[in-house]
Design a protein around this nucleic acid. Structure first.
Lengths: 129, 129
DNA sequence: ATAAGTGTACTATCACTGATAGTACATAAA
DNA sequence: TTTATGTACTATCAGTGATAGTACACTTAT
């Protein structure tokens, strides 16, 4: 959860997994602004996949303002993550709204829906060692 | 929403759209048990897609116990939908749980999450004419 | 200056999957 | 008998993800 990995058996393309993976580490604060992230070739080697695939992911991450890359130097976490954070927040609320809407559509009661939320927020000490 | 359609521009495969589409109509009670559904060729013609694609969707729907097909007669909604309904319910609750978990992970407060649920359940007259 | 490591840009190729096209056959109903 | 149905094939195409290989410009450290 706190490092980069891929699931080769997943339906989701590898490069998308990398994108979401790094994005998650950055937006959750595991990787700090201006911190360096693994080089294209290094990460490709670590994960046993093609460098082109990593580059495709990094290009998308740069497009989203999550990281920036500099030829000869490497790739780094963006110094301004506000845009990306806002977008993620909106996306999460939208997902929650959609799930709730679907639940209602199929006859799941409001009380039960609230109970699910409460249950998820009462899993004590989410990030313990 | 209450009839079968497809979005050719979607990332989701056409046959999967058909599956979810029919499944939704059946589990929401729009299509009743033992009611007939469009024939493979008819639906293919209506939607402007290949009959093989429809058949692939119908085969999956039959596998899930949503419909059943009979050569020479046609395809019909299953008479016993309890299994499919249970699975759908579990799936919806799981989706809600996942959305809530993600929201929490990224710092969205419990109050805000509950507010989203309440908001979605207070959209009065969801299904008006 | 040199070497090593970096991002980046190509081309070519392969594999998988979704989708189409066409044909064919057995069945059921009018 | 005719028509429409589900079903089962084969062949083909298109798009996409991924790999392989090469190359070039840039930065950093030696």
């Amino acid at each position: 959860m706190d490092s980069i990995y891929v699931d080769l058996k997943s339906r989701k393309p590898i490069y998308e997994q990398i994108v979401e993976n790094v994005s998650s580490l950055v937006l959750r604060g595991v990787l700090k602004p201006n911190e360096s992230i693994p080089s294209v070739r290094q990460l490709a080697s670590d994960l046993g996949i093609n460098p082109n695939t990593i580059h495709k992911a990094y290009a998308e991450l740069e497009r989203r303002g999550i990281i920036f890359s500099s030829p000869g130097r490497g790739s780094f976490v963006s110094d301004d993550l506000s845009h990306a954070a806002d977008r993620k927040r909106t996306e999460l609320l939208s997902a929650l709204r959609t799930a709730a809407h679907e639940a209602r559509t199929y006859g799941i009661g409001e009380d039960e829906a609230h109970a699910v939320i409460s249950g998820e927020y009462s899993n004590d000490e989410e990030g313990k060692s």
